[in-house]
Computed example of a mutant assay.
Amino acid sequence: MTQVVSNGAKGRLTMDNLVIVDLGSNSVRMAINEIRPDKTFREVGRYKEDTRLSEGMGPEKKLQDAAIKRTLAALKHFRILYQDLPNLTVKAITTAAVRQASNQADFLERVQREVGLTFDVLSGDDEAYYDYLGVMNRLRVEDALMLDIGGASLEMVNIRSGKESNLISIPFGAVNLSEQFHLDDQINPADFFDATVFLRQRLQDIWWLGEAKTKPFILLGGANRSLARMSRRQQQVLHVEQIHGYQLTTHEVFRLFSGLLRKNHEQRKQISGLEPDRADIIVGGILPLVLLLQMLDSDRVIFSESGVREGIINAYLNQDYN
């Protein structure tokens, strides 16, 4: 992991700056955090660029040139924003797309050469665990199923009595499901059926999921956040982006998903609260949630703005992440 420290010596009374660069399968995100002397922190900047790194990886799991160029451009832009901060530490993490990539080593070497960042490739279990740490730091729950649907993977954590009981990462998400089953535009019933059968078979193989039956879901990830924003727009709620702790009934999730299925790509791009560049992957991104809600007979979902980045900050402050 690259750590970048300014020339000035760190003083006890000087704020440290911790930057988390999170390279995901659909977007690259950055959070700039001020670390206080008492080891509390304050987020002072949050940035996101949609780069869709996992686009077109296909069965050979190869990162494509166009996606790599988009990602490098975003990382270079982010570097401009943080490189002159004093007392700086940068922690760069990447998840499913790079974790699965057959050309991972070439990609990471190019990022190091052109941007100066050395990425820590999180395992699926690590990603799920840091999600859990981030959620539990801000949402006090005793029993729930945490679900993070990303671009190329899905993480689940069974929370029992406030503790992580079981966790898993599965290598499918919004981008690769949408590509594999052609869920990007008008939905063909046969394609939708094939996607449903594929997902249900793989989810049924997870032995401990039965222990999460009837538990509420805690939702993370871009597709889930879009679902919350769509709901808040329809209800004309102020501060649409403030979704942390927001809840929906399972019935409302199903209603929103049904509306997505009835629209083609162009029509979905017009939905208030849904980012237009997510319109082609939103059905693939929400489908796992819908199936799990049915399988586990859960009655509601709770949205979390905290996730892997906040989990890493928490671990860093407790000296559990180097």
Results as ranks from 00 to 15, higher is better:
155 E>L: 05
313 I>G: 01
159 I>R: 01
15 M>I: 09
72 L>N: 06
321 Y>V: 04
110 R>M: 15
128 A>R: 02
204 Q>C: 12
167 L>Y: 08
242 Q>W: 09
84 D>V: 08
10 K>G: 02
255 R>T: 15
106 D>A: 14
30 M>F: 06
235 Q>M: 13
229 R>W: 11
28 V>W: 03
291 L>C: 13
234 Q>V: 10
30 M>R: 09
204 Q>A: 15
34 E>D: 07
302 I>Y: 01
79 R>L: 08
114 E>L: 12
236 Q>D: 11
219 L>A: 03
243 I>G: 05
269 K>F: 04
7 N>S: 14
37 P>M: 12
228 A>Y: 00
180 Q>Y: 09
319 Q>S: 15
159 I>V: 15
263 K>S: 11
161 S>C: 06
116 G>Q: 02
165 S>P: 04
247 Q>P: 05
104 Q>F: 07
116 G>T: 07
291 L>G: 13
3 Q>A: 13
261 L>T: 05
285 G>R: 00
206 I>H: 04
123 S>A: 14
40 T>M: 06
195 A>S: 02
297 D>Q: 09
191 D>T: 12
250 T>A: 08
119 F>L: 14
170 I>C: 01
305 E>T: 10
106 D>F: 12
120 D>A: 08
228 A>S: 13
267 Q>Y: 03
19 V>M: 01
67 A>E: 02
231 S>L: 03
271 I>Q: 09
99 R>N: 03
192 F>C: 06
264 N>M: 06
221 G>D: 05
65 D>E: 15
316 Y>H: 06
279 A>I: 00
194 D>S: 12
235 Q>F: 15
305 E>K: 11
228 A>M: 03
32 I>M: 06
257 F>N: 04
238 L>C: 15
138 R>W: 10
153 S>A: 10
